[in-house]
Write a protein that binds this DNA or RNA. Structure first.
Lengths: 153, 153
DNA sequence: CCTTGACCTAAAGTTAGGTTGAGGTTGTAG
DNA sequence: CTACAACCTCAACCTAACTTTAGGTCAAGG
């Protein structure tokens, strides 16, 4: 039986979040979590770390790397339990990044919709479908659909 | 000079999408792309594959794996160039998956907002913050914040 | 024809994000 | 006070998603 204590064990945090103990230890090595240690050397997490771990999982679902998540979490205060305001700030910033990603997806859809009129989907030479080869010299990424096409069309 | 031909080389596809030649070859081994070969054994892609590769990149940005992307792309017709309708179907389905993910994020934010009233952020024993330990027995994932909390609160 | 850049395959190497295993220590229920 | 589950470290291993390397072939301009 787990008493209601200020801190929780790694096994408890694992049970509550569904994240393997080994993964939680790994997150510590990556500085995503900063548990204290008890006299015997065992990790003691804050209950607030349940939220922290959940955030990590959700962010991963959206394709964020550990490095990026660490950057987001760095916005939380060190030393004290994050308040609602602290988490809210992260939520807002995170939401903006997601919005940008969704805009990209929307661009793709709009592009498809806009393209139908010109017959380009029949794969002939089409300025919309094939927006000027000069676009080819601009670094990496899916340039056409990622919003870099302005000026080409 | 690249003439306007029915098919394009791997280098051209690489230039147009920003994806390395080695990655395009890899995508072929993973059955995301199905180029034909010319007499000399070189790959010949359709222009439509530019769109296909862009889709792969965008989906990856949202945390989809190659395997999941392959499943999505399987909705496109084999043998003929995808029409607007074909792509639109994928876009719609893809959008639904994203919506679900975003709902998860929204859950997290709502939960934070709803939690302020009960003082749970001070980390005492709080039913909202710590929604019944029975939640611990339901498989993996961030159960509390991922929408599994209905019934616990 | 010859050169040279783009292409080919196959196998090994790389990075992120973990898991597994060995060998030992801690903490708690009986 | 003893058993045993849960914890510890460190090193090796794993998968996904590529890149790099080695050793060659193809194709287009001069």
């Amino acid at each position: 039986m787990q008493k209601i204590e200020k801190t929780v064990s790694i096994g408890y945090l694992s049970d509550r979040t569904g994240v393997a103990v080994s993964a939680l230890r790994y997150y510590e090595t990556q500085n995503l979590l900063h548990p204290e240690r008890n006299a015997g050397g065992q990790r003691r997490f804050l209950r607030a770390d349940i939220r922290r771990v959940s955030f990590i999982l959700i962010a991963q679902q959206f394709g964020f790397t550990i490095e990026q998540i660490k950057t987001e979490l760095a916005r939380l205060p060190e030393g004290r339990t994050p308040t609602k305001k602290d988490w809210s700030k992260i939520g807002t910033h995170f939401g903006k990044i997601l919005d940008a990603k969704i805009t990209t997806l929307q661009n793709m859809r709009d592009n498809l919709d806009g393209c139908i009129g010109c017959g380009c989907l029949s794969l002939k030479s089409c300025a919309l479908y094939n927006p000027a080869d000069k676009a080819s010299k601009r670094g990496t990424g899916p340039r056409y659909l990622m919003g870099d096409q302005a000026g080409d069309i």
